[in-house]
C-alpha cells in the first residue's frame, strides 16, 4: 500500500531498522538506527515489531504527503513535526488521512527523529536487513537517502494499530536531549597505547562535536590526547561506540555506518546504554567521558532494555484481541476493526 509521497526529502532521511548483522567479516558495515531506543519506541507505538523499517530523519525533516489512511508515530528528536501545519505530538500514535501533509519546522532538541508507520516502510530485505548503508549504496530505499518524488509503501498493519491511536508512554520513559552529553565508557581495547596524561585528558576534558560528524562517526574537537608511540595499530575490528584517536589527537566516536576494521588506536568504548545519547548529538553539543566497569555497563544496559519493555507494556495494556476486516457496503470499501471486550 502506497503511504507517502516525498515532496521534499529534508537534510538526510533514510530507511533504517536495527542493522545488518552477520556480514562484517566481509567488510559490510552494520548500519541501522543511530538511536535504537527512539527507533524501537516509534515502532511499538504503531503496533509494529520493534525491528521494523522506519524513517530516520536528521535535523531538517522532509515534507511528506499521506497517500492512504494509516497510523504513524514520531519519536526521538523534536524537529518541529507538523500535521497540516499544526503541531504533531511526538511519542504518540496519530491517525492520518489521505491528502494530509507532514512537515517539520526545524530542530528544537536532539538530532534524529524516527517516523514509524503501521506495517513498516516496505523496502526489500538485503542481507537480512532493510537498513540503508549510504556509502555502499545498499539497502533501504534504492540504497540512498530519500529524494523528492519518491513514493513509499507500507507493509500490512497489525489490527491493533488503530486502537493505539492517542496512546503515549509516561513522561519518565521519554528521554530529553541535552546539549551537554555525558557518555560512560569502558577503557580499551587499546588504552595502553596512550600515556597516563593522555588518558587523564580524555576523561577530564569537554569536547565539542564538529560539523564533520555523520552516521559513520562523531568527530570531536578539544584537548589533544597523547599517545605513547603514535596512533597506528594493525587494522582490527571496530565495535559500535569505539572511541578512535588518530594522529591528530582528537577523538572520533564510531557509529552505525562505521568501517568494519581500522588502523587507529581505540582508547575506549561507549557503553550500549549511552549509544542513543550520541545518536541524538548534533554539531556544537559538548561531550564528557566517564570511565565505568563492564559489570556496571551490563547493569545499565539491562535497565535500558527494561525501560523499553515497560514502554511496550504500558502502550499495549488493556488491548484485547483484535481482528481487522475489509468490508464493502453499497460499493464503498471500509476497514473495520473488531476488538474483544475485556
Amino acid at each position: 500500500m502506497q503511504v507517502f509521497e516525498v515532496l521534499s526529502p529534508g537534510l538526510l532521511t533514510t530507511v533504517q531498522d536495527r542493522g545488518r548483522y552477520g556480514y562484517q567479516a566481509f567488510g559490510m558495515p552494520v548500519a541501522g538506527a543511530m538511536d535504537d531506543y527512539a527507533f524501537r519506541a516509534a515502532n511499538i507505538l504503531v503496533g509494529n515489531d520493534p525491528n521494523t523499517a522506519a524513517l530516520e530523519i536528521t535535523l531538517l525533516g522532509p515534507r511528506l504527503r499521506v497517500l492512504a489512511p494509516t497510523v504513524l508515530a514520531i519519536a526521538g528528536a523534536d524537529l518541529g513535526a507538523c500535521l497540516n501545519e499544526m503541531e504533531l505530538p511526538l511519542w504518540q500514535s496519530v491517525a492520518v488521512q489521505a491528502g494530509d501533509e507532514i512537515s517539520f519546522s526545524g530542530p528544537r532538541s536532539g538530532c534524529r527523529a524516527y517516523l514509524a508507520v503501521a506495517g513498516g516502510i516496505d523496502v526489500p530485505v538485503v542481507m537480512g536487513s532493510c537498513s540503508t548503508y549510504l556509502r555502499g549504496e545498499t539497502g533501504g530505499f534504492g540504497g540512498r537517502a530519500l529524494a523528492a518524488g519518491d513514493v513509499l509503501s507500507a507493509g500490512e498493519a497489525t489490527p491493533s494499530a488503530r486502537a493505539l491511536v492517542g496512546r503515549r508512554p509516561p513522561p519518565e520513559l521519554i528521554p530529553s536531549y541535552s546539549c551537554e552529553i555525558d557518555l560512560r565508557v569502558i577503557m580499551g581495547p587499546q588504552d595502553e597505547y596512550f600515556t597516563e596524561a593522555g588518558k587523564e585528558t580524555f576523561l577530564s576534558s569537554t569536547y565539542t562535536i564538529t560539523n564533520e560528524s555523520d552516521r559513520m562517526g562523531c568527530r570531536l574537537a578539544g584537548p589533544k590526547i597523547e599517545h605513547v608511540q603514535g596512533p597506528d595499530i594493525l587494522s582490527d575490528g571496530i565495535p559500535l561506540g569505539a572511541v578512535q584517536v588518530p594522529g591528530h589527537g582528537f577523538p572520533i566516536i564510531l557509529l552505525a555506518d562505521r568501517q568494519t576494521v581500522g588502523g587507529y588506536t581505540k582508547i575506549a568504548t561507549v557503553i550500549g546504554a549511552d549509544i542513543c545519547r550520541i545518536g541524538q548529538a548534533k554539531p556544537g553539543d559538548r561531550v564528557r567521558f566517564h570511565a565505568t566497569t563492564r559489570t556496571e555497563a551490563v547493569e545499565l544496559l539491562r535497565e535500558h532494555e527494561e525501560r523499553l519493555k515497560r514502554l511496550a507494556a504500558f502502550i499495549h495494556q488493556d488491548i484485547g484481541r483484535m481482528w481487522g476486516y475489509f468490508i464493502k457496503v453499497k460499493g464503498e470499501h471500509f476497514e473495520v476493526t473488531v476488538q474483544e471486550l475485556k
Partner: peptide, 8 residues
Amino acid sequence: PAGERALV
C-alpha cells in the same frame, strides 16, 4: 574488552 558488548 571492547565495551560490554564485544570482546577482542
